[in-house]
């Protein structure tokens, strides 16, 4: 049997975290190939629905990366992200969805190493949880 590999969706803001991922690549730092990056203009572009849709389509974990607080390209976007995700993640926890399946991390364009380390750590955490059973849409898994 193949060892279980979680599918991870990473929303990365264009100005910091996506560039951070690029840097990780340029520096040949490795992170799991099952991390699928979706580029968004700003972390606050991520509607809670995006996170749920990712789970619907088969993600086992969803991580949202943006510029460090204070460094958002649009000045304040990530402050709103922080509040929004605090509520969303608490709600998921309340519904009994494992809280380790969601995460927010601030990664700057200079932090290629942090990007790789974050993804490795998150993939490991999610792998330990196993497949996402509580929030899946079986029709999308065919």
């Amino acid at each position: 049997m193949q060892p279980y590999k979680p599918l991870i969706v990473a929303f990365c803001c264009n100005w910091c975290s996506y560039a951070g991922a690029d840097l990780a690549g340029n520096n040949r730092l490795s992170y799991p190939a099952d991390v699928k990056i979706i580029r968004v203009p700003c972390s606050c572009r991520v509607n809670p629905m995006f996170i749920l849709r990712a789970f619907q389509r088969g993600a086992d974990g969803v991580i949202l990366c943006g510029c460090h607080p204070g460094d958002c390209h649009y000045t304040t976007g990530n402050y709103y992200t922080r509040r929004r995700m605090s509520l969303l993640f608490s709600m998921l926890d309340y519904l009994g969805i494992e809280r380790e399946r969601t995460r927010v991390e601030w990664v700057s364009a200079a932090e290629g190493a942090k990007f790789a380390a974050t993804m490795n750590d998150f993939a490991e955490t999610v792998a330990a949880l196993g497949e996402n059973k509580r929030l899946e849409d079986l029709r999308c898994k065919k």
């Binding site: 204070g70 402050y79 709103y80 605090s86 993640f89 926890d93 969601t102």
Partner: peptide
């Protein structure tokens, strides 16, 4: 949700505080 503070809690800590 249409407001913020510079020193708001991070979502990871917030989940623990709330749950």
């Amino acid at each position: 949700l249409v407001d913020f503070d510079f020193d708001d809690m991070e979502p990871g800590e917030a989940v623990i505080k709330n749950g």
